[in-house]
Amino acid sequence: MWLWFAKLGSPRWFYELSDKWLPWLYVSMLILMSVGLFWALLIVPEDYQQGQTIRIMYIHVPVASISLACFPLMAVAGTITLVWKMKLADMVAQSVAPIGAWFTGLALATGAIWGDQIWGTWWAWDARLTSLLIQFFLFIGVIALRSAIDSPDAAAKACAVLAIVGAINVPIIKYSVEWWNTLHQPASNFSIDPVAPNPPEVWVPLLVMISAVYVFFAIALILRTRNEILQRERRSQWVIDLVTREKNV
């Protein structure tokens, strides 16, 4: 009885809960993003080596760091799908994949632009860029597998297995690429360690930008998951009621 209730109830519960969260998330994203962008674009001093291009870091580093979190998140959601057969977890897993691909793609693009003045070339087989590229391929693989399998239940489980295998592989890929490419210097000497050589006027705005992009990630994920909930539960009464209640679309 309880299991049945939890199974049927949880996507709806999430949908209604996220209705309450979204305004707060929008507001905090707006505040964090405007403070972060203002700070990064106008106030951060020129770097003695990179000059004004240090401002690229305030986009590239947050995006890249979140793109690394997407695969583990997908694997966790996949594990929950496999073990507890929770519908909501698979909806989250399905929504993470395209967002992760987007984040990784943007990290690659901004990394290439940054690389043009660090290394003097748009593409270098630098360890970070290369492992991001392979991670991008992994996301494409998960998305392709999902769209190739017709049965939603089998697609959910298959993608969960692939996400777990991929998540185990991501650190191995990262390590082997770094090891392969030890000649290159690390791409950024960024660290949030307070004793790092970077002064606070450089890393505090970076932290603001990272949290802003994290909130943005949460919003994008919730929006996609909500659509997925509506799509999959479209025959249930609460979605039908919701559709009739929605006046202005």
């Binding site: 392979i134 991670q135 391929f137 992994l138 494409i140 693989g141 392709a144 597998l145 190739a148 692939l162 295998v165 991929g166 592989n169 191995i172 890929i173 390590y175 082997s176 690429v177």
Partner: peptide, 12 residues
Amino acid sequence: ILAVIVLPLSTP
């Protein structure tokens, strides 16, 4: 699809 899934895993 097989290639897209397997090749990235084989890179290490």
